[in-house]
Structure formats: C-alpha cells, structure tokens
C-alpha cells in the first residue's frame, strides 16, 4: 500500500511496520507512548503494540541509552528516542563507551543492535539546545553507524535498515523537514542500504554533496545554477558513517569539482572528512579546490539570528560560482 506521507509519518510507518513484524522491537523514550512523541513520530504505537513495547521512560537520557544496551545484549531490538539531539550528551557515556564497544570487547559474544533516534538541526525557531547539528562527534566514534535521511522514502527505508542492523545506529532526523514535503512511500518493509550515497540529480559540472535538511537548499541551488547552464550532481550522503567513498569518488572524478553543504559548524566536521577523502583519493581529478558551505564555528544562535547561521541557497550558489570560475 502506497501513501503520500511526510518524513515524520515515514518514521512512524517504519516503526509500526517493524514492530508488527518483529516482536523483539521495543520503542522507548520520553513522551513516546501516550503522547506519541513531542513531534508525534511514535503516534499510535503504544495503543497498537502495548505499553510493554512502547515505553514511556522517566526523564533520564542515560537511562534510555543504558537500558537499551542491556536489552540489546539479551536479544531485544530497542529503538530509543532522545527527544532532541541537544539532550543526547547525557546518553553519550552509555552510547559511546558501551554500545559502540560491546561487540568488540566481548569478541562477538554480545552485540548491541540498538537504534538511537533523535531529531536534530535548526530552522524551526526552537528554544536553546533544540537546534544543534553534532553528527560529526558521533561519526568519529568507532563501532557505531550514523544515518540521516532527507526524504520520506529514505527515512522509511533507512530506519528499517537501522532497526535490522546488528550494530548500534544513531539515526538523526532533520526536524526542519519533518513535515515540509510529502512523497509516495510504499509500506512494504523494504529497507535501503546503510552504505550508500543516493544520487538525487545528475550533472557534469560540479558535485554538490549534503545530507539531512540541507539537501532542500542544495537542490534549490542546483535548480538556480541549471538556469545559468551549470549542471550540478547532487548527492545525499545519507549514511554519515561509514561513508560510501566509491560513489563520492565516481561523481567527483566525473565533475572534477565538489562543494560540500552542511548545517553543522565547520571545524572537524563531516565536511572535513569528505574534503580529506577527496584530497587523498581524487586530487588528480580536481579542477578546483573542494569548497564547503557550512554553519559557522559559533554557538548555534537563538532563533532570531539562526537564519544567518544556516547555509542559504544564495551561499551555495555563490560558492559554486566561485568553484566554476577557479
């Protein structure tokens, strides 16, 4: 059955599908049960699958991550929600020091098939600590996967893949585009691969790579540039860790130019990693420096200034023009 749904509804649909298919899947977090989550990502799940499997936890992020690890070692598949990414740091000791390491430190005796979901990113006029993009911190950690969808269809397929993955996955949901667009998604339980860059638009002049909500601006920029006869190839990174280097290199070898667009701060970010990969492996293909359009290395401002922080279509277009003129 195919539905025209938002990214948020796709998350809900994937959770619902997998809970019905696999009774070991457990959803837990703050306000996820009766209230259906503050964004309604888990709406209706408790009523359908029971309070034993859709758990309203106490307000304790370390508990949410830590008990998920305990469950996962015993064969359950917890999908835990951290209400906003800004609150994930209280869960980091558990996620980084235990979830990421359990398989390795027991030489495969125990594993940690858990998903930590969190809405992330700015642009919705949210209060303090509700708008950050700190995916790079987690991408640095061995033993976990970091996945970010950018459309309803990819949210559905990637979340199913994350739940079925035998290792811990951080699944970050770009909340700015939770309800921005709808897409026809077939609720057939088909997962997408967790090691693949998705090519959203083909072009020969410059590779634009982004992820999450920023793909919205990136694709708009590609449209603007097409009118100027500059043809961009737009890539959705989707899986932040591990990066699909092959697709990235194939694209940049074709275009010879790359602009990376991210909402996160610049220094030591995912864009830094992509630029380093290109420096290591694509130098002879490059016709221009790899450029980055990113958030600034500032504290994410409160919402009256956040539009100055977020990369805009204009900044992306201007950067691509610079690269083309190099």
């Amino acid at each position: 059955m195919a539905n025209n749904i938002t990214l948020l509804e796709a998350v809900n649909q994937a959770l619902d599908y997998e809970m019905a298919e696999d009774q070991d899947v457990i959803v837990l977090g703050e306000d996820v049960g009766l209230n259906g989550g503050v964004f309604r990502a888990t709406d209706g799940l408790q009523k359908k699958h029971g309070a034993d499997r859709v758990i309203d936890t106490p307000l304790a992020e370390s508990l949410i991550a830590g008990m998920s690890i305990g469950m996962a070692t015993q064969g359950l598949k917890p999908v835990a929600e951290i209400q906003f990414m800004g609150f994930i740091f209280a869960a980091c000791d558990q996620f980084i020091c235990h979830a990421a390491r359990m398989r390795n430190r027991t030489r495969g005796r125990l594993s940690c098939p858990m998903v930590l979901r969190a809405p992330y990113g700015g642009g919705i006029h949210a209060p303090e600590h509700h708008s950050e993009s700190t995916e790079a911190i987690f991408a640095h950690i061995p033993g976990i996967r970091v996945v970010i969808p950018s459309s309803p269809g990819r949210a559905y397929g990637l979340l199913l893949a994350a739940i079925r993955d035998p290792d811990p996955v951080l699944f970050l949901e770009p909340k700015r585009i939770y309800r921005l667009q709808t897409e026809t998604v077939t609720n057939n339980g088909e997962a997408l691969p967790l090691d693949t860059i998705f090519t959203l638009r083909e072009g020969d002049d410059v590779t634009l790579i982004s992820w999450g909500a920023m793909l919205y601006e990136t694709q708009k920029a590609a449209e603007v540039l097409a009118e100027k006869n500059i043809f961009c190839e737009v890539l959705d990174l989707a899986t932040i860790k591990p990066i699909d280097t092959k697709t990235l290199l194939n694209s940049v070898e074709k275009t010879g130019r790359c602009v990376i667009v991210q909402e996160a701060a610049k220094t030591c970010s995912v864009s830094s990693e992509i630029a380093a990969i290109l420096a290591e492996k694509a130098l002879t293909s490059l016709l221009a420096p790899v450029m980055r359009v990113t958030g600034y290395d500032t504290i994410m401002p409160l919402f009256t200034l956040e539009h100055h922080y977020m990369p805009s279509v204009e900044r992306i277009v201007a950067t691509v023009l610079d690269v083309m003129e190099f």
């Binding site: 008990m67 996962a72 070692t73």
Partner: peptide, 9 residues
C-alpha cells in the same frame, strides 16, 4: 543501567 534493560527484557 544495563542491568535495568536486562531485567526489563
């Protein structure tokens, strides 16, 4: 906290 998850399971 792991023990909580194990006991829950």
């Amino acid at each position: 906290l792991h023990a909580v998850g194990i006991a829950y399971a």
